[in-house]
């Protein structure tokens, strides 16, 4: 590592190694950081993506219903969820869920990692246990992995839900009041067509942008959720290294999260120009 060199040459050595995919070696695990991260990344990604997925399938319809029925009970539920979602500390939500669903009701398994004690991980293809076990046709493992995943991903989803539902509602409300919707209604188009093809598509742009932002928050919040649920992902790995003042893994973690984030922003930008071709022409 050249610890006897000056700071600049240490940095230069780090950069040179980085170009070859070498992020240094972790003192605590004794393995190359790249290898450690690659082993743990699927666990984090599986959790984050499932959380985002739940947030989208709940948040978008909720926002749509709230926008089409303003000031109804569903609008109030939406407002309650969006207000409380941003106030609840994620680590606290996770603990409350554990207390209710593990201790009181006994529905969820113990919050200890990705599988229960009696299952062994499925054959490694993607590293996502849900996909791997489904590919191998081992449904017992699939159920075990899903049972472990469900509470942490709901914790993430509760947090991600708020901005998504809020933006969907606001965007859709604005579009629903516009002239072309009135024309579509006057032309006698079915309600579903007006809502999905005309209104939703036109209000999707801010929603997709928010989704990118929400994903970046989730990547950060992941660290907390992984600690609460003893999840063996990159967040808890970086945290252990951080407490042990082991810097190479922390640098590797921050760097890989930033790369993920940039890639995600690229996807969001591409999606935006797909949804609304005017964006590309303006840029």
């Amino acid at each position: 590592m050249g610890l006897n060199e000056s700071l600049f040459s240490q940095f230069w050595i780090y950069l040179k190694d980085l170009l070859q995919g070498d992020m240094g070696r972790s003192f605590t695990t004794g393995q190359p950081v790249t290898q450690d991260l690659m082993e743990r990344l699927p666990a984090s990604l599986e959790l984050t993506l499932l959380g985002l997925f739940i947030a989208i399938i709940v948040g978008l319809p909720l926002g749509m219903l709230a926008a089409t029925h303003p000031n109804s009970w569903i609008d109030h539920i939406c407002r309650l969820l969006t207000t409380s979602g941003v106030c609840l500390p994620t680590f606290f939500t996770g603990l409350v869920l554990i207390y209710i669903f593990y201790y009181l009701l006994g529905w969820a398994p113990a919050p200890m990692g990705r599988l229960d004690l009696f299952s062994s991980p499925p054959q490694d293809v993607t590293g996502f246990y849900l996909i791997d076990s489904a590919l191998a046709g081992e449904w017992a493992i699939f159920r075990s992995a899903l049972a472990q995943l469900i509470l942490p991903s709901i914790t993430l989803a509760l947090f991600a839900l708020a901005p998504l539902a809020r933006i969907t509602r606001a965007g859709l409300l604005g579009v629903l009041n516009s002239d072309f919707i009135r024309s579509a209604k006057a032309a006698g188009l079915p309600r579903r067509v007006i809502l999905v093809r005309y209104a939703l598509r036109n209000s999707l742009l801010p929603v997709v942008n928010t989704m990118g932002m929400v994903f970046s928050y989730l990547l950060g919040i992941n660290v907390l959720v992984e600690k609460v649920f003893a999840w063996p992902g990159i967040g808890s790995y970086a945290l252990e290294a951080l407490i042990a003042s082991d810097y190479a893994p922390v640098q590797g973690f921050v760097l890989s999260i930033a790369v993920l984030y940039v890639l995600l922003n690229l996807i969001v930008d591409l999606l935006c120009s797909l949804i609304d071709p005017r964006v590309e022409r303006a840029a």
């Binding site: 941003v86 500390p89 603990l95 409350v96 554990i98 593990y102 201790y103 919050p111």
Partner: peptide, 28 residues
């Protein structure tokens, strides 16, 4: 909350609940 988290699994909810609730309410 972090200290109380160890006791959640054995059912001592009050350690983590009250500080977490205080935080939530102040942020709200």
């Amino acid at each position: 909350v972090a200290e109380g988290a160890h006791y959640i699994i054995s059912g001592q909810w009050w350690l983590a609940l009250f500080p977490g609730l205080a935080l939530t309410l102040v942020v709200l």
